[in-house]
Amino acid sequence: MGRGEEKREEGRGEEESAMRPRSRVRMAKCQMLVTSFFVLLLGLAVASMAALTYFGAHFAVLGHASSERTSYKAMHRWAFYVGISLAGLLTLGAVLTATATVREAGGLMAVGFLCFALVFCALVQVAFWSFRKPTQVEDAVLDTYDLVYDQAVKSSSSIWRQELAAIQDTFLCCGKSSPFSLLGSSEADLCRGAEAERQDCLQGIRSFLRTHRNITFTLTAIGLASTVYGMLLSSFLWFTIRAGCSLDRKGRYTLSPGARGCQPQEPSFFRCSQWGPAPQHSSKADALSGRLGPRGHSDGPRLLQGD
């Protein structure tokens, strides 16, 4: 009874030690699927933000009023292209990692890891640029408004006044405060009636850009955290797949010694018996002829015989 109990305990210990890596792989797969789903949602959010930045009313009216010589045009296009590229890489990485997790495909998992790595590098550059030059976008937008405002005040053309009115109606503001608290007659004519009660356009534009910057910073932080976690999970699952970890017919994970095809190699005896010719049993005559030489003499050691 003592030996039987010891064997049972040893068997239980071996089963528990074998279940630990299996449970880790299953947990990593579940986390990878959940992370891929959230990364997919993040990609859609980044794409929506990029489209809102390019086609939104606030940025579109400024882009229509700005000239090609200003830095706002180039910055506007750059922000849109970067956002769309990041959204595409996030979506592609999420789809590839989810598919690779379900199918246990090492190649797809490696490509998904590469997508996450590219997004991580791009987000690091964006974060570094935003911390180094936090007011560059705000300065470009305010320069565009100042240009339109000055042209509407100084020029007699109605085109600039229409552009200024479109900007002010979009941002729900009117004019800008004078440092000397005195406005000329042409400047006072721009804000009359209910428009005079609106807020200053410089403050309104700054408030809108501050909200937009906070949303962008939040998406950048979530993207950095998601890509780092996705890279860790994808690298772990890639090494697991390369090691030959797969599901058997009973739904259990088995680790094979080789990574090719996730199938353990058979011993040489079974390979020979399966693919080679069937073994033939030698008869006594064959054994005797094998021991005798070509002339009928024995090839073995000769016994000394006495006279």
Score class of each variant (00 low, 15 high):
Met1Gln: 07
Met1Val: 00
Glu6Arg: 08
Lys7Ile: 00
Arg8His: 03
Glu10Pro: 02
Arg12Asn: 09
Glu16Gly: 02
Glu16Phe: 14
Ser17Lys: 13
Ala18Glu: 12
Ala18His: 09
Ala18Gly: 07
Arg22Gln: 15
Arg24Asn: 05
Arg26Trp: 09
Ala28Leu: 05
Gln31Arg: 08
Gln31His: 08
Met32Cys: 14
Val34Thr: 13
Ser36Val: 08
Leu41Ala: 14
Leu41Val: 02
Gly43Tyr: 08
Gly43Ile: 01
Leu44Gly: 14
Ser48Ile: 10
Ala51Leu: 14
Leu52Pro: 00
Thr53Tyr: 14
His58Leu: 01
Ala60Gly: 06
Leu62Arg: 00
Gly63His: 08
His64Glu: 15
Ser67Trp: 05
Glu68Thr: 09
Thr70Ile: 03
Lys73Gln: 07
Met75Pro: 00
Met75Lys: 11
His76Asn: 03
Trp78Phe: 12
Phe80Pro: 00
Ala87Cys: 06
Gly88Arg: 01
Leu89Arg: 00
Leu90His: 01
Leu90Trp: 01
Thr91Tyr: 08
Ala94Ile: 02
Val95Tyr: 04
Leu96Asn: 02
Ala100Ile: 02
Ala100Val: 03
Thr101Leu: 00
Gly106Ala: 11
Gly107Val: 10
Leu108Ala: 08
Leu108Glu: 04
Met109Cys: 04
Ala110Ile: 09
Cys115Leu: 07
Ala122Pro: 02
Val124Lys: 06
Phe128Thr: 04
Trp129Cys: 00
Pro134Cys: 12
Pro134Asn: 12
Val137Met: 13
Glu138Leu: 03
Asp139Ser: 05
Thr144Ser: 06
Thr144Glu: 04
Tyr145Val: 00
Leu147Arg: 15
Tyr149Asp: 11
Val153Phe: 09
Ser155Glu: 15
Ser157Ala: 15
Ser157Leu: 15
Ile159Leu: 10
Arg161His: 14
Arg161Ser: 14
Leu164Tyr: 12
Leu164Val: 05
Ala166Gly: 03
Ile167Met: 10
Gln168Asp: 11
Phe171Glu: 03
Lys176His: 11
Ser177Met: 10
Ser178Thr: 05
Ser178Ala: 11
Pro179Ala: 13
Pro179Lys: 04
Leu182Gln: 15
Leu183Pro: 01
Glu187Gln: 12
Ala188Gly: 15
Leu190Ser: 09
Ala196Cys: 05
Cys201Glu: 07
Gln203Lys: 07
Gly204Ala: 13
Ile205Lys: 03
Phe208Lys: 06
Leu209Ile: 00
Thr211Tyr: 12
His212Asp: 05
Thr218Val: 13
Thr218Met: 15
Thr220Tyr: 06
Ala221Thr: 11
Gly223Phe: 02
Leu224Gln: 14
Ser226Lys: 01
Ser226Phe: 02
Thr227Val: 06
Met231Cys: 08
Leu232Ile: 15
Ser234Ala: 09
Phe239Ile: 04
Arg242Lys: 13
Ala243Asp: 10
Gly244Tyr: 07
Gly244Trp: 09
Gly244Cys: 03
Ser246Val: 10
Leu247Asn: 05
Arg249Ala: 15
Tyr253Gly: 02
Thr254Phe: 15
Leu255Gly: 04
Ser256Lys: 05
Arg260Tyr: 12
Gln263Met: 14
Glu266Cys: 06
Ser268Glu: 14
Arg271Phe: 15
Pro277Met: 04
Pro277Asp: 06
Ala278Ile: 08
Gln280Ser: 10
Ser282Ile: 10
Ser282Lys: 09
Ser283Arg: 05
Lys284Asp: 11
Lys284His: 07
Ala287Glu: 12
Gly290Arg: 15
Pro301Thr: 10
Gly306Trp: 11
